[in-house]
Amino acid sequence: MRKFAAACAAILAICPALAQAAQPCLTPAEASSLTAFALPSAITGTTKRCAPTLGNGSFLRSGGSELAGRYSARRSQNWPAAKAAFLKMGKGNESSAMLANLPDPSLQQMLDALIEGMVAQQIPLEHCGEIDRVVGLLAPLPPQSTAELISIVFGLAGKTGQGRTNLFSVCKS
């Protein structure tokens, strides 16, 4: 239990450092895998945050949980590259070595909770309608295509240094 608490603290310590550190250059495969791994938790966090403000006919209220479940199906295939990307993003942080030594199930569980919680806290409620529309438009795509599309957008934002999505840039392949 003490190890779990220390690991949680390390992840929380790494997050502000990720935002302030030089953006790591992730390969397209790392960025896509990291995004694919994070999507189920991000969708769950978005659904929890936005569903109460959306109408009964909204996508997130009617299909958010199902979409998160569908996107979870390939998580184990995406995990090795997602883990490498996450650790690359924290490289140089004193907590990264401890995180790298955690068993994968523990690290995955902590990342899920962190991603879901951060998303649920940071979405402005006035943006929920637009987010619901975007998620509804992306929902028919295969999960890997959605992850690749989102990682391209995050990578482009990282190159411009604009906005809140500048956590990483995508290296040219």
Rank of each mutant, 00 (worst) to 15 (best):
M1F: 05
R2C: 01
K3G: 06
K3C: 03
K3Y: 10
K3H: 05
A9G: 08
A9W: 10
A10C: 09
L12I: 08
L12V: 14
C15Q: 11
P16M: 03
A17F: 08
A19K: 11
Q20L: 11
A22N: 03
Q23N: 06
P24D: 15
L26N: 05
T27Y: 15
T27E: 03
T27C: 06
T27A: 09
P28A: 02
P28K: 11
P28M: 06
A31K: 03
A31Q: 07
A31V: 10
S32H: 03
S33V: 09
S33A: 09
L34M: 07
T35C: 03
F37C: 00
A38W: 05
L39V: 07
P40L: 00
P40F: 01
S41A: 09
S41V: 00
S41Q: 01
A42F: 00
A42N: 00
G45S: 02
T46V: 01
T47L: 00
K48C: 01
R49H: 15
A51V: 01
A51D: 05
A51P: 07
A51H: 00
L54D: 06
N56A: 14
G57T: 04
F59H: 05
L60K: 07
L60R: 02
R61T: 07
S62E: 04
S62P: 13
G63C: 10
G63K: 12
G64P: 14
S65K: 09
E66F: 09
L67E: 11
G69W: 03
G69Y: 03
R70I: 04
R70T: 05
S72R: 08
A73K: 12
A73D: 12
A73N: 05
R74K: 06
R75C: 11
R75W: 08
S76T: 13
Q77L: 13
Q77S: 07
N78L: 07
A82R: 02
K83G: 00
A84D: 06
A84Y: 09
A84I: 15
F86P: 00
M89D: 04
G92P: 02
E94K: 03
E94M: 12
A97F: 03
M98Q: 05
A100Y: 11
N101V: 00
L102P: 09
L102K: 12
D104G: 11
D104V: 04
P105M: 11
P105S: 04
L107C: 14
Q108M: 12
Q109Y: 14
Q109L: 08
M110N: 03
L111H: 04
I115N: 12
G117A: 13
A120Q: 10
I123P: 05
P124Q: 11
C128R: 14
C128G: 13
G129W: 08
E130N: 04
E130Y: 07
I131L: 12
D132R: 11
V134P: 04
V135D: 01
G136H: 08
L137T: 06
L137Y: 02
L138N: 06
L138A: 06
A139W: 02
L141Q: 03
P143A: 13
P143E: 11
P143N: 09
S145M: 14
A147I: 04
E148I: 05
S151P: 11
S151T: 05
I152Q: 07
V153W: 02
V153C: 03
F154W: 09
G155I: 10
L156S: 09
A157K: 06
A157R: 15
G158P: 10
G158Y: 10
T160Q: 11
T160C: 15
G161T: 07
G161M: 10
N166R: 07
N166F: 10
L167D: 10
F168W: 12
F168L: 13
S169H: 11
S169P: 08
